[in-house]
Write a protein that binds this DNA or RNA. Structure first.
Length: 244
RNA sequence: UGACUGUACUUCCACUAA
């Protein structure tokens, strides 16, 4: 089963959905019973592709084979709905999930918060954050990054920065993604100086800038017509073994 | 008894599919 599932995941990632689904039939023919993970893999990709009808088919196949949908299955579906802006449907799935005795975890909440934010339902997202807290499902930097990105995208850099500080106060260490998002925001706002400071700060804290960080900084300098700095960063990036 | 192998959530760009 593991070998089949691994191959199936690879096919899915390569976008060869159809072959992945054929593989499911193939493995049954070989007397190999697909398990929950196998189905989750397929459901994930079909969900991303927005092919809800196939998702439903797979879901039924799964249940008739005696595989119970688990947190992964539900969260996968919830996430697919959330990224497509169908947040209310996602909450419907959440209800079903809970009724079936399946407990939502951090990933589930993160997906929902992401969906709410994408639909500009910020207050509800914040409300959900409090629900998480009550349920002892602690938000992580991942969760905060969803909010950070939203503020940056809206050009509300002060809000983003406040949140960034708040994270630190709540002893949630910003991760490299948090820094990348903030640097992007500063760059967009033309606040080169501060972007540079943040860039320095992250390195002091032991984060190695990644391709995205460099892209952000280079774009930031480019916008500020500081071509020399941009070029210098570019070569530094290469020196650090970071391929453009 | 426990650990280990395959599946889910966030940031730039490109690619692919429609």
């Amino acid at each position: 089963v593991v070998a089949f599932t691994t191959l199936m995941d690879a096919l899915c990632r390569a976008g060869r959905l159809h072959q992945a689904r054929e593989l499911l039939i193939e493995m049954r023919r070989n007397g190999c019973r697909p398990d929950g993970m196998t189905y989750n893999t397929l459901i994930h990709k079909y969900g991303d592709a927005g092919d809800i009808s196939v998702v439903c088919e797979l879901w039924e196949e799964m249940e008739t084979e005696g595989c119970k949908p688990d947190v992964f299955t539900f969260t996968t579906l919830i996430n697919a709905l959330c990224t497509r802006g169908k947040v209310d449907d996602a909450f419907g799935v959440l209800d079903k999930m809970i009724k079936k005795g399946c407990v939502p975890n951090l990933h589930t909440y993160n997906s929902l918060i992401g969906g709410l934010i994408k639909s500009n339902r910020l207050e509800e997202a914040q409300k959900l954050l409090r629900v998480m807290y009550r349920k002892r499902c602690e938000a992580t930097s991942f969760t905060y990054n969803l909010f950070l990105d939203h503020y940056v995208e809206e050009g509300q850099f002060n809000e983003a920065y406040q949140l960034f500080l708040q994270m630190k106060r709540n002893s949630i260490t910003p991760d490299i993604v948090s820094y990348n998002i903030c640097i992007e925001g500063l760059g967009k706002a033309g606040r080169v100086r501060e972007a540079k400071d943040l860039f320095a700060e992250m390195r002091q804290l032991g984060f190695s800038p990644d391709v995205i960080t460099y892209n952000m900084m280079i774009r930031c300098y480019g916008k500020a017509v500081k071509v020399d700095e941009a070029i210098q960063l570019f070569s530094e990036m290469m020196d650090n073994g970071c391929a453009p």
